[in-house]
Design a protein around this nucleic acid. Structure first.
Lengths: 205, 205
DNA sequence: TAGATTGTTAATCGATTAACAATC
DNA sequence: TAGATTGTTAATCGATTAACAATC
């Protein structure tokens, strides 16, 4: 429960801070200053202090921040202390790669459900999961109470899948399909598209 | 050659406009207004007009924008008319998925080089490419004049790979490894990490 | 204590929006 | 022509930075 309205752009930096704190813990670093954090993340020290101050005073003057306790605070703020179920729709190469991805463990997420529309894929095993029929999407998501969906279908299918997910109760979508989704206000969407990222850089070449 | 300094945040929206224009061309739509574009992309019409005005006046009062010619203008501005070679380092599940990805064609990019450090992978075929030895990274990138790298290695290897790429002449990096890279000013980096995206949304759940 | 660093305020900087004359 | 929509300016809004008292 934030004390005041926190800008979304601030929320977007918290996972970056959290990731660096995880890294510092692995290095057995006990304390870190906003200055050092900033240098490692290419963010100004003032911005880091300001971002954190939306949620409280976590540091100690003259010393900096305790790495472990700031890590715990950010985990709490981002609500990634408990594991959340994720449904992944579209078991192509990318979907398969994400299903295998080891980086979700310990970061608050677990892919628990794989869906596809291809009869040749439905029923097959990927890791320890069985691919299920996308026609069962709504009841499956509802029954399992899943709030997060990852869409790795072709572009033409993505909007329909998103609509169905939302009807079933999904409130956060990570969309890998190269299309802008139309969603109601209460649903969050994040996009990731390698072409967008690359095109954004070639301008400067 | 932009007329004046264009904010990076504006450059970041141009690929989104371009993608929608590609979509509209496939729908055989000849003309589109900033209002309609905005509705489809969840961006205000004023912002679209302002963004485009950094580069010139591409529209027609009372009518809107010619879809095909705005598409051509944006392709030119983003320099994605010619195909650019991309090196991909780290042929794990994700690297393999990107190597197979069909979405680069027609969008200005082609993965031409695959590198890995695993002797079991070096020499194998992926699609029509052969995985090469990452120890040859610098000469390969130099000889082939590659300016764009996609890093899909584990986090601990990513900074070293980035350094080597930059020494060899790379100026744009798309980094899938979950780590913030330190790079000189003349090098652009884009990040994509599913954990970051998901954590950014769970705050709102 | 002296040095370092926080948390916060005010100033600056930059991005978005609203409005409208120009004009197709 | 009348209606629609652009390109642009000025106003608004929001984010970042600089500065520093507080204090560990």
């Amino acid at each position: 429960m934030p004390a005041r309205q926190v800008p979304d752009i601030v929320i977007g930096r918290l996972p970056v801070y959290l990731r660096m704190l995880t890294h510092l813990m692995a290095e057995n670093k006990l304390v870190v200053s906003s200055k050092e954090l900033g240098q490692r993340l290419n963010i100004s020290a003032a911005q880091i202090r300001k971002d954190l101050s939306y949620f409280g005073g976590f540091g100690k003057q003259g010393a900096g921040y305790n790495v472990a306790s700031l890590h715990a605070e950010l985990s709490r703020i981002l609500k990634v202390e408990e594991i959340r179920s994720v449904v992944l729709i579209g078991v192509g190469d990318l979907g398969r790669a994400l299903a295998h991805y080891g980086g979700f463990a310990n970061e608050g997420f677990q892919v628990t459900t794989l869906l596809d529309n291809d009869p040749n894929k439905i029923g097959t095993q990927i890791g320890h999961l069985t691919v299920e029929d996308v026609r069962e999407l709504e009841p499956i998501i509802r029954e399992r109470g899943i709030q997060i969906a990852v869409i790795t279908t072709p572009a033409h299918a993505a909007q329909g899948i998103a609509d169905a997910c939302i009807r079933a109760g999904v409130r956060a979508i990570l969309n890998y399909a190269p299309i802008t989704l139309q969603v109601p206000e209460h649903v969050r969407v994040q996009y990731t598209d390698p072409v967008m990222h690359l095109q954004r850089m070639t301008y400067y070449l």
